[in-house]
Design a protein around this nucleic acid. Structure first.
Length: 296
DNA sequence: GACCAGGCTAACT
DNA sequence: AGTTAGCATGGT
């Protein structure tokens, strides 16, 4: 059972304005480190503190203005229902950071990007996106996902411009290996076709993934082609399904091996993360990954 | 050219 | 059960 003792009363104030929702008093929320740490692939930087993205089937524009955050193309009711969970404004980062900072490496990693926040993204979008991530780089992942959305997503309009939603599993049911190859997905194309067909007849019970053991959750996801331990952990974490996993990619391996022991296997790293960071391991991983990419 | 990128599958010992 | 080649693609 995953304990959610780090969830508590929200520490923000949201108010409806004429053409946007204004967010006050939010702590630990930085747009660049949240959107550009490799957890999401559909946010576009307009300028240093303004982003436009598509998520939850909607277009959202977020702008930082001093201590305020402005959310355009939404309203207060939708903000509370959709965007608060999406931006994990219900996670008490003061508490998480206090616990994680006891580890000296985490203390440095958090100091580097104290506003990095986990996004609780759509489950199937996360699953498909991270199958595409394997042995790939973030820039190319974004490009392939852009092609996929262009090919199979639904139109949504914002400020006179057409955006595309991330396609649902049903939207992608007709796509073949050939189509994914044309999008640039490479050898992952076969995985996508296979997994999408399987998800059509056998969906995943997200509440089971939340309540079972981490090993069970990993094994459940690994039954789908293209998902191994690392991708499974990314799906669990970045969909906000659970926070005790620890996606160990090449950057995490590098920084953990240099910090701990050069001979550490992936299993050693996972065991260390679980024992030291416990229920916050996934959030610790985000800080570490971001830090490693700028310092190694 | 070689090597790398948020690895996985399948085919070996 | 553990180890490793092969895999598409594009950038440095």
């Amino acid at each position: 059972m995953v304990r959610n003792d780090y969830l508590k009363e929200a520490t923000y104030t949201a108010r409806q304005e004429e053409n946007c929702v204004k967010l006050y008093n939010v702590r630990h929320f930085d747009l660049p480190s949240t959107f550009e740490n490799g957890q999401c692939f559909r946010w576009e930087r307009m300028d240093s503190d303004r982003y436009i993205g598509v998520a939850k089937g909607k277009v959202l524009e977020v702008k930082k203005d001093g201590d305020l955050y402005l959310f355009y193309n939404t309203n207060l009711q939708e903000f509370e229902k959709v965007w608060v969970p999406y931006f994990t404004l219900d996670i008490d980062y003061d508490k998480v950071i206090k616990v994680l900072s006891k580890d000296p490496l985490l203390e440095k990693a958090i100091a580097f990007a104290p506003g990095l926040r986990l996004l609780r993204q759509d489950f199937h979008e996360t699953l498909i996106s991270f199958i595409l991530s394997s042995n790939n780089n973030i820039q190319r992942i974004k490009k392939i996902i852009g092609n996929l959305c262009q090919a199979a997503g639904k139109d949504i309009r914002y400020n006179g411009k057409i955006y595309k939603t991330f396609p649902s599993i049903r939207d992608m049911k007709h796509l073949t290996c050939r189509d994914f190859l044309d999008m640039g997905a490479g050898y992952r194309s076969k995985y996508l076709e296979h997994t999408i067909q399987r998800l059509c007849c056998e969906d995943i019970d997200a509440s089971f993934l939340r309540t079972c053991s981490l090993d069970q959750a990993r094994k459940t996801l690994q039954q789908y082609m293209g998902i191994g331990v690392k991708v499974a952990d990314c799906i669990l974490l970045y969909s906000g399904t659970r926070y005790d996993c620890f996606p160990a990619d090449v950057w995490i391996k590098k920084i953990m091996r240099s910090y701990l022991d050069d001979r550490f296997s992936v299993d050693d790293i996972l065991e260390y993360a679980s024992s030291v960071f416990g229920p916050y391991a996934g959030i610790a991983q985000q800080y570490l990954f971001h830090y490693a990419r700028f310092h190694l």
